[in-house]
Write a protein that binds this DNA or RNA. Sequence first.
DNA 1: TCTGGGGTCCTTTCACCC
DNA 2: TCTGGGGTGAAAGGACCC
Length: 425
Amino acid sequence: MGGPELHRGGSRGVVPPGQQQSGNDVGCHILHVDMDAFYASVEIRDRPELAGQPVIVGGLSGRSVVLSATYQARAFGVRSAMPMARARRLCPHATVIPPRHRLYGAVSKEVMAIFQAVTPLVQPLSLDEAFLDVSGAIRLLGSPADIGQRIRADVARQQQITCSVGVASNKFLAKLASVHCKPDGLLVIPADRVLEFLHPLPVSALWGVGERTGQTLARLGLRTVGDIASTPVRSLEAEFGPATAAHLSALASGRDSRSVETSVREKSVGAEETFDVDVADPEVIRRELLRLSRRTARALRASGCAARTITVKLRKADFRTITRSRTLSEPTDVTQRIYDTACALYESSGLSGQARLRLVGVRASGLLPAAATSTQLALGDRPSSWQAAETAMDRITGRFGADAVRPAALVERRAPEPRRSRPDA
DNA sequence: TCTGGGGTCCTTTCACCC
DNA sequence: TCTGGGGTGAAAGGACCC
């Protein structure tokens, strides 16, 4: 790392558990906990003979990408989101395992329960990471670093997987800390040494700086976080606009006022699917739109929401993406309504029958609690019967699987069609 | 090298209203 | 009647994150 001497502790014991506080973590009440190579670790737990081996979790079809890879596979250059074909070239002897999302969801629930036992202030970010505000637990459980070590020990004992914990005064710094102590470590960024840690880092360490923003910053001669911190906000505004400039400037100074939110309401739900082979046939596209509308509607009903806006996403063979959206007069959680809208948007896109598509997607946004939305009946509509029928179908598919009941249009024909990368689940 | 799927957030553009 | 500015919301695109 080459930076200041910060508290780093791992199972290898650079700093033994229980000896972490020494005043260093005063004011550091935010923890970021991140599972190490989560999907791959869960798979290895079930297949211990693979421990210490390069293992890649990802789909087997032609257009799949790496979802998770063990550190042994990463040593060969394998990274998540990398095309599987490339990963297999880089590490041909790796064991490739198709993902089991339900299993990861179940393990995630148990891990989150471990966090909840420490503090009710838990904000899950994804299946494998969460922020914790432990300010209320310090008197009972010890310093934030002690609490971090306790969590690491509990996760290892109960789930046989490792995690890394960042401890700092805010979310951004806690997350940065966990990244820097991976795998299987714990790192405290003391409040009085934030800039010492932060400023030598590359700009890509800032949340929100990806490839494009990084290029723009490089063009301006800004390569480290310290460079951004010493640049007037006005100069950044000219290049990035007021919101992004303020965001970059604050993070570069180690400021992040976001609190740990225990109930983050989702703003949209959707589903998308990449074809194994590009598709031009409008009939096949519409059938996929039906499948995706069904998945979206089911997700809406499961979350008790109805959506006002429906968006269709169409990615052409050349990877260029267009979206088309429509806001409905009444919010809906009904497949047929979503599907009708999605088809209308597809037809009006100008791509129907004109372009080969590699991906289609359906997304519903402008979410409202379904209970609070009134349904206005148009002449000839019978939405309440649609809703009743679909709710009944939800119950059946919940018990017997996604394929137990489905629209006639989605019953597989004998004629071959492009195999999709995931089953409709 | 050839790019998944689920999301969030920001910016720009445009239509519409006052 | 035409023009313009400001505010607002929708639409579209893009960057980014895990």
